[in-house]
Amino acid sequence: MAKITFIEHSGERLVVNIPVGWTVMQGAVQNGVEGIEAECGGSCACATCHCYVDEAFVDALPAPSETEEAMLECTAAERLPNSRLSCQLKVSEALDGLVLRLPEAQS
């Protein structure tokens, strides 16, 4: 399990325990995090699971794949240097304590 904090655009904070091996998006959807839509179910084909990774964790994450890179160009909210697609982030113990901010709009 890793404890992950989602900060909705409204400012509301949700702390969720996600099993190792799941994606961050899967944990968010299971726990009713409003700001993640995930229309494509995690196929890296919709960019509606966009999140901003807390600066302290950016370097701890593996770099985005080519497909994620391409999809990050299609986000509804502005793409920032710390933008990631949460369906491409696999949960490991190393992500315990991760903080993610959610954008104003996903689609």
Binding site: E39, C40, S43, A45, C46, T48
Partner: peptide
């Protein structure tokens, strides 16, 4: 299964987004 599934889904997803 992925990765083939995800590429196929990438092709058709555009027609099914909320927008």
């Amino acid at each position: 299964d992925p990765p083939r599934h995800d590429r196929l889904r990438g092709i058709v997803q555009f027609a099914f987004t909320r927008k």
